Every structure is written in C-alpha cells, then in structure tokens.
Amino acid sequence: MRGYKKPTVSIIGASGYSGAELSGMIARHPSVKLENLYAYSQAGNKVSDIYPALNLDMTYRAYEGVPESDICFLALPHGEALKLVPELLDNGKMVIDLSGDFRLKNPAEHLTYYKQEKPADAWMTYAMPELFHDEISQAKAASNPGCYATSIILGLAPVCRPPMSCGTVTSVSCSALSGLSGAGRSAKTELSFSEMNNNIRAYKVGMHQHTPEILQALGTSATSPSFGFAFTPMIAPLTRGIYTVLNISLEKQLPVSEIKEHYRQFYRSAPFVRICSNPPEVLHVAHTNFCDIHVTQSAQDGSLIVITAIDNLVKGAAGQAVQNMNIMLGYDETLGIM
C-alpha cells in the first residue's frame, strides 16, 4: 500500500530462547519491521554468531532508554519488566510483556508465588486470545500468558468459564511435562544432558508460579479457589513442548459426546486450537502456535480427562505474543504465524 509505514518493533531481552523465537517470527512478519534487538549479556555480539539459524544480519544492543520503535516486546527475567514498562507506556509505546510481572491482579499472590513485591496497579490486560480477544483488541499493554498456564487454561476453560460455570467443576488434578527450554538459556547443572537424558523430574510441586495465573483466568483465585486444584509440573528430556493431562471431577456427570461438542463450539472461532479425536503429541505441535486438545472420560468413574499439547516457545511464549500483537494492531490474528 502506497504511503503505508510498517509499525516498528524492538525486542528487549532478545537473546534468550523465547526472545530468539520472537526475533525470528517478527523478522518474517509481513506487516511490521524489526528494528532493535536488546540483550544485556550479548550486547555487541552478532545475532548470527549466537543463533545462526535465525539468519539475521543484526547485532544485539545494550538497552539505554526508550527506543524509537512503535512496539516493544519484553522477554526478560521476572522482575525486570516492572522497572522498564512504566517509562515505555509513558512514551506511548505499545507493550507486550512475556514475563510474569504483570499477569496477577493481586499483589499478595504475586509476592507469595514470585517472591517479589509489586505495586497494586502493576497489571496489564491478560492476553490469552481465545478468552479475552475483545479486551486485547482495545489494549495498548498486554501481559502474555505463561507456558504451563496456556496449556492448562485452554484445557480447562470450556468447563470452567461460561456457558458452563466453575460450579460444575469440583476438583482438578493436573500433571504437565515441559521441555528443557522452558527453564531458559542459562546454564544449570541439573538441566544438562547428562542429568536429564532418560530422566523426568518434578519441581515446584504445589507451588508453581503459574497456579494463581491459571485460577485467575478461570474466574477464581489461588487465595480463595472455587474448586480443588493440584498442579504437578515436571521437566522432561525434550527441547521444546508441554504435554498436560487434566483429570477433572464434575458435580454432574455428563456424556462425553456432549462435552466434546461443547469444546468444539467453545473454540469454534479460535484458529490455533484443534480438538483432536486422538491424544495429541508434542511432535504434532512443535514449531507451531497450535494447542491440540483431546477430551475423553474415565471408564471407572466417569471423570473427565483432557489432554493438551503445545510448543512452549511458540504458543507458550513468542507465537502467542505475535498473535496478541496482531490483535492489538487490528490485523488478522494468524498473520505471520500460520
């Protein structure tokens, strides 16, 4: 289009796994222009030296203040975005944050689960497109959901949000396996090949930081939950992917065919959610923005079993962030992703 100027993008925290995934997606996006890549630890290094596969002729820069770009993505460790976002918003930037800094409305829950204090107003639109599309379309600042949270919320939302209410669910037991990239790029002995090959390890059992985020998005809270919720996260010897199994007890036993149809209708306008006849596989969603969901029922007690699979770096991070950017800019939400 003659005279059209593409919105420009800066990525702050671009050298981590999520930041690198995002860099590649923005560089390929047809309707925005990648302008700056900021990275504290890699400042001065060429992107091609750190991530040759990205094929980007750019150099990481040190962050020295508000960039000229129209849109700023932040892919920083928890706590860092809190320091930068207020100034970005004051300067009229569109902001999409991939950390947990702005996800929780309740500062007390944030302190409990993130071990950090934050101001009461440090909250931004919780940007899960399948649930909050209209709110995202009006937002100038968006908080991208966590990876585990995405896989779990999408599996639970049809039975926890209207037209079915949380009162229908009495308890949820959730186990989720994550690929090693979910822990970030920093070297850790316990995540090395020799420690994790042929191994699975549970961690943060009963106290994972995505728990209050999940319950908040489902219309309840970790402080006063309306149904029992037990979450066991685990690390598996995968590079990428999250595989989640949800065992859901309902007040009223419903035919599984009715529940499956409800899931299909709930996600009928969601281009990146696929309701599958068979249990999903991580390989089927790797390097995509899809969430695959399978719904079935226990033959013993009729309880609901929902299985989901996503790529933690795409639908669980960078892909969902680009999806949110598209919605905020009024583009088709699949642009540059599908």
Rank of each mutant, 00 (worst) to 15 (best):
I200R: 03
I200N: 06
K204V: 00
T189P: 01
Q216H: 00
S226L: 03
F229N: 14
P225H: 04
N199Q: 08
N197K: 10
L238I: 05
V205F: 03
V205C: 08
G219W: 01
M207Y: 04
A202M: 13
T189V: 11
T239R: 01
H210N: 15
F227E: 14
P225V: 05
N198R: 15
E195M: 01
Q216Y: 00
T232K: 13
L246V: 11
S249R: 15
I242G: 03
S186Q: 10
S226W: 00
N247G: 04
G241A: 05
Y203F: 14
A183G: 10
I248H: 07
T223P: 02
G206I: 08
A236V: 04
P212A: 06
S192M: 08
M207T: 11
F227R: 15
A183D: 08
H210T: 15
M234A: 14
N247I: 14
Q216W: 00
M234W: 02
L218F: 04
L238N: 06
K188N: 11
T232E: 14
G228M: 07
L246F: 08
N199I: 04
Y203N: 02
N197E: 04
M234I: 05
H208A: 09
G228N: 09
A236L: 06
S226H: 04
Y203W: 12
T239V: 02
S194M: 09
I248A: 12
I200D: 01
S226V: 10
T189F: 10
A217Q: 08
K252G: 01
G206Y: 14
N247T: 15
A222M: 09
A236S: 13
E213A: 15
R201L: 05
S226N: 12
T220L: 11
S192R: 05
S224K: 11
G241E: 03
L215W: 04
H208L: 08
R185M: 13
T189Y: 05
P237Q: 07
F231L: 09
L191S: 04
F193R: 02
A202H: 09
M196W: 00
G206C: 10
Q216P: 00
